[in-house]
């Protein structure tokens, strides 16, 4: 794969099985099933083990916003905890910038967390006995940064998340949205390269959630970090993600761009998710474009590859013949039959 070269996090055949002596049980199950992971997982479940992450292989590219989505209990939080090594995985490798963190020493892990990783938690995980400023400055404190320097850095990130003026408040005095801003600020205080967010907005009201999502996107546009973002909300995933991995029962069932997920779901489980979604708002013209052929018709409604299907369809209401599609620079790169646009939107109803 070419992707591997630019990838910053790579998981290979990663398993996380809960239960006593899970590692021997897993290797037994794998040898019994001759390496078939589904059979092995069934065997483990029958014995009372819980395979929370099952044979996951995936990678996240530098600067990518990678969303892991699934229902509760699908193993997404466990997977991100394996990546950050909050949970030691049962077997498999996790490479971070080429370094296998599974075999890393405790000291090295602390090192990585102090410099490379930040994490945001669903229920914020704020330290109840520390003020906002102390919470945000804590990662710097354990690193040994001097008091003055860490106060100024903490104030900086607090401003970044829009909480200036609340530095001396305690977590219990803040609203849910404000608390998560503190969580975000804390995870950014050491300026990590890799940013893990475990359902950061799920515990918030819909309105606050949307507001924070927008701010998050703006923040990411300036920071450009590598992000692993966990959510159970398909709309959130589609709105934020560069790529989405969909998990079920510990397995990744599909990895793809938002358009892929919406237009080409691999199975009913994924289709169920995309049913909730107004497809036309997410799928792009490029997904139904036929490349290369120059249409002979004179009509040109001015479609581009990055246009959503809804917009494209609106421009082609009265058209029946193929129309040209341009890329960002204005060159014609292909054509689209208006009928295909409509078909793509209705695909799921078949």
């Amino acid at each position: 794969m070419t992707e591997v070269n630019t990838s910053i996090i790579t998981c290979q055949n990663l398993w996380q099985v809960f239960g006593t002596n899970a590692d021997t049980a897993l290797s037994d199950a794998l040898s019994q099933s001759e390496g078939n992971s589904d059979t092995a997982a069934t065997l483990l479940r029958d014995k009372g083990f819980i395979p929370a992450v099952q044979d996951v292989t995936m990678s996240v590219g530098v600067g990518e916003l990678f969303v892991i989505m699934g229902l509760s209990g699908s193993g997404k939080s466990t997977l991100v905890r394996c990546m950050s090594q909050l949970l030691p995985s049962t077997t498999g490798d996790i490479l971070i910038e080429g370094e296998n963190v599974v075999s890393a020493s405790k000291k090295r892990l602390i090192e990585l967390r102090r410099h490379k990783m930040g994490m945001v938690f669903q229920h914020f995980g704020l330290f109840p006995h520390m003020s906002v400023l102390e919470n945000v400055a804590y990662p710097l404190k354990v690193k040994g940064v001097g008091s003055k320097q860490r106060r100024s850095r903490a104030a900086e990130v607090i401003t970044l998340v829009g909480l200036e003026g609340r530095e001396d408040s305690f977590p219990r005095e803040l609203s849910g949205g404000q608390r998560q801003r503190v969580g975000i600020a804390r995870s950014l205080s050491v300026n990590p390269d890799i940013w893990f967010l475990d359902e950061p907005f799920s515990a918030l009201d819909p309105l606050i959630r949307r507001q924070l999502q927008d701010e998050f996107l703006k923040l990411q546009a300036t920071l450009n970090k590598t992000i692993v973002f966990i959510t159970h909300d398909i709309n959130e995933a589609l709105k934020l993600a560069d790529r989405i991995a969909i998990m079920r029962d510990g397995k990744i069932v599909q990895i793809g761009t938002p358009t892929d997920i919406v237009l080409n779901p691999v199975d009913d489980y994924v289709r169920e998710f995309s049913n909730d979604v107004a497809k036309g708002q997410h799928a792009k013209v490029s997904s139904v474009m036929l490349s290369g052929e120059n249409p002979t018709t004179a009509e040109d409604p001015g479609l581009t590859t990055t246009m959503t299907l809804d917009t494209a369809l609106a421009r082609c209401v009265n058209l029946y013949n193929p129309v040209p599609v341009r890329d960002e620079t204005g060159n014609i790169v292909g054509n689209v039959r208006p009928a295909d646009l409509a078909t793509a939107l209705q695909a799921e109803d078949l």
Partner: peptide, 9 residues
Amino acid sequence: EAAVMSGGT
């Protein structure tokens, strides 16, 4: 977990 991820010993 937040304490762990902050890089505390």
